[in-house]
């Protein structure tokens, strides 16, 4: 079968060592000289936890049960997404020689940024798992499905990194747009507040309120956060709609990202 997508995937698989080497390079450069390198990946979420606890609990007076675990279940997957996309978006234009001077599947470049973030994410997730019992919610049997959830999110994020890195090649200011998008997306995802708080959201202009509620409930990251919490915090199987959405978002993002990237990457060597 001479399907170009299949050929590209096969080639990506054959050159996986390049991807792994780029990942190692990223991680080693980042953690060089610090034995407790993982400490830096943990510092950000911990500081954020502290700040959001102060603001939401003591300033605003919102009380969420077991807030530290609740927050981390949403924030760690979010950091994975936001770091991946921010690092991957300029990755192709920052590595012109890998595009212009050697032949390799170009998708390796953004995907290696995603995998580097994935490694950090998995490490922080393991630490979270180890910490769970101390917060009175020892992980149940459903925690075994965690690798599957992480895999689905990695594919979803991978699609986004392809999308944004390809568009950054053609439009150099995608970065600014992305920064704004990430802030909006963060607040439209129930990471620091529970989704139940928005069920009765009243905005001055009702149609906008409906849109906001819909986005907070059904945007891809909300769905993923919902699954992470179900698995880690409640030990409950997510409902069918949530699982269906995870599958749709994952496949949709992967397909869009891959096809768009494949279409535009053929000419990267001329425009980078």
């Amino acid at each position: 079968m001479k399907c170009p997508t299949f050929q590209d995937l096969k080639e990506l698989w054959l050159r996986r060592e390049v991807l792994l080497n780029l990942v190692m390079r990223d991680l080693e450069v980042k953690y060089k000289g610090s034995v407790i390198g993982i400490f830096w990946s943990l510092l950000n979420p911990l500081m954020m936890l502290l700040i959001y606890t102060i603001v939401f609990r003591y300033v605003i007076g919102m009380n969420v049960k077991n807030f530290p675990v609740f927050f981390m279940c949403g924030f760690l997957p979010w950091i994975f997404l936001s770091n991946s996309v921010t690092m991957a978006a300029p990755s192709v234009i920052n590595n012109p020689n890998l595009v212009r001077k050697v032949y390799m599947p170009k998708s390796i470049i953004p995907l290696s940024a995603m995998v580097a973030c994935l490694v950090e994410f998995v490490m922080t997730l393991i630490i979270l798992l180890l910490a769970l019992p101390f917060f009175g919610c020892a992980p149940g049997y459903l925690a075994f499905s965690l690798p599957l959830v992480v895999l689905a999110q990695a594919i979803f994020v991978g699609g986004l990194t392809l999308l944004f890195s390809a568009s950054t090649v053609h439009f150099r200011d995608v970065k600014h747009l992305l920064d704004i998008l990430l802030i909006v997306w963060f607040w439209l995802t129930p990471i620091v507040y529970p989704v139940s708080k928005v069920a009765s959201l009243k905005l001055p202009w009702p149609p906008l309120g409906d849109i906001v509620v819909w986005l907070i409930t059904y945007n891809p990251m909300s769905v993923f956060v919902c699954v992470y919490r179900a698995v880690l915090l409640q030990n409950a199987v997510p409902d069918v709609l949530t699982i269906a959405l995870v599958v749709i978002y994952t496949l949709g993002s992967a397909a869009c990202g891959w096809l768009l990237f494949a279409r535009s990457s053929a000419r990267f060597a001329e425009v980078v």
């Binding site: 390049v18 390079r25 060089k32 020689n97 001077k101």
Partner: peptide, 10 residues
């Protein structure tokens, strides 16, 4: 070119 992918820190 020589040294594709070289990283100065490594």
């Amino acid at each position: 070119e020589l040294g594709s992918g070289f990283s100065m820190e490594l």
